[in-house]
């Protein structure tokens, strides 16, 4: 935490006494207009991330978690479109920003890490060429200094003998190593925000552990805000400060990691956490959520989870509004698992 900023911004941040959020997303709606009908991939999503904070955005396939990330980056292509809402990055609205402005921000102030590092890496260019280009695209720096900066960045993400790796082509590196290089590139220009879309999903357990460890340390050190998109709650449990759980295009629950994992309020979070094997007795049947992930086309009105929810009743035909259960803890549910007295 940078002390200077902290004291400066104290007045404007009343609730939890920290700085102004780096990113504020308000009522974001991103829809895709396909032949089969409008797909409400992101439907009224609001969240914020502060400097140095890691937000875990968890959800299953089709929950809209990746599209949320792409919306922030301005990477939604037709037939998709941001229908309404605001994305404020350091106070600047990205929804109305020009493509040139977004281009300038991307890779500079906002960086991204994909599941497949080859989305970032060019297979025919050496690692150093790509990293130097990434630096020089956004700031004036001579080649030698830029190369030194690239060297430092590789060292920072725990790559052994960075000098050799700089001279390598991406295909000469292992999958874990490539992902590290992609992460190093993301951190190159010391961005204010990094959006990481399932960056460890394709990696092995021991390699994943290394990368989680390094990403966490880097955010703490550089004060970069991070959105870590994943389907695996166990990954964000060990990584994120706060968690937002998405289901069918909406955030159904947000809160501090410990609170969401230990005391989930939304029946979907409860079901998801309860179905994990470690939450069940060895050898017993697992608690399962019945049914399947709903189609986003022609989603019935009301709560999207009602068909699978054990607590659903007639109230659930009305779309639940976001309720602030307690400071920093929001849910979208008519029947949350509140701890009632005597329960």
């Amino acid at each position: 935490m940078s002390v200077a900023e902290d004291t400066l911004e104290k007045t404007s941040s009343q609730r939890d006494g920290s700085a102004v959020p780096t990113l504020v997303v308000e009522n974001l709606k991103t829809h895709f207009f396909t032949r089969a009908g409008a797909v409400k991939a992101v439907d009224d999503v609001s969240f914020s991330v502060k400097a140095g904070e890691i937000l875990g955005l968890a959800g299953e396939s089709g929950s809209g978690k990746s599209i949320t990330g792409f919306s922030v980056l301005g990477l939604i292509d037709p037939p998709g479109r941001i229908v309404s809402g605001a994305i404020r990055f350091n106070g600047e609205d990205l929804v109305t920003a020009s493509p040139e402005r977004l281009q300038d921000l991307r890779g500079n102030r906002i960086a991204m890490i994909f599941q497949d590092p080859m989305m970032t890496l060019n297979p025919v260019l050496r690692v150093d060429t790509q990293m130097i280009e990434a630096i020089q695209a956004h700031r004036k720096m001579d080649r030698k200094a830029a190369r030194q900066r690239a060297y430092d960045a590789l060292e920072m993400v725990g790559i052994p003998s960075p000098g050799e790796r700089l001279n390598a082509y991406p295909h000469q590196l292992s999958g874990g190593m490539r992902q590290r290089v992609a992460i190093a590139i993301a951190f190159l220009n010391e961005p204010d925000l990094i959006i990481a879309d399932e960056p460890t999903t394709a990696l092995d357990v021991t390699i994943q552990a290394q990368i989680l460890h390094e990403a966490q340390a880097l955010c703490r050190r550089t004060g970069t805000a991070m959105i870590w998109i994943t389907h695996d709650l166990a990954v964000v449990a060990g990584l994120a400060d706060r968690i937002a759980v998405m289901y069918a295009g909406r955030i159904v629950e947000t809160g501090q990691t410990d609170e969401v994992i230990d005391h989930p309020l939304h029946p979907y979070s409860v079901g998801l956490l309860g179905s994990v094997p470690s939450a069940n007795k060895r050898g017993d049947r697992l608690n399962q959520i019945p049914g399947m992930t709903p189609s986003l086309i022609g989603l019935p009105s009301g709560c999207a989870f009602k068909a699978r929810c054990p607590r659903a009743d007639d109230h659930c035909d009305a779309t639940p509004e976001v309720i602030e259960e307690m400071p920093g803890r929001e849910i979208r549910c008519h029947h949350p698992h509140r701890q009632e007295a005597g329960a």
Partner: peptide, 8 residues
Amino acid sequence: EVPRLDQR
């Protein structure tokens, strides 16, 4: 090193 829910 396997991520677990109970390890924060």
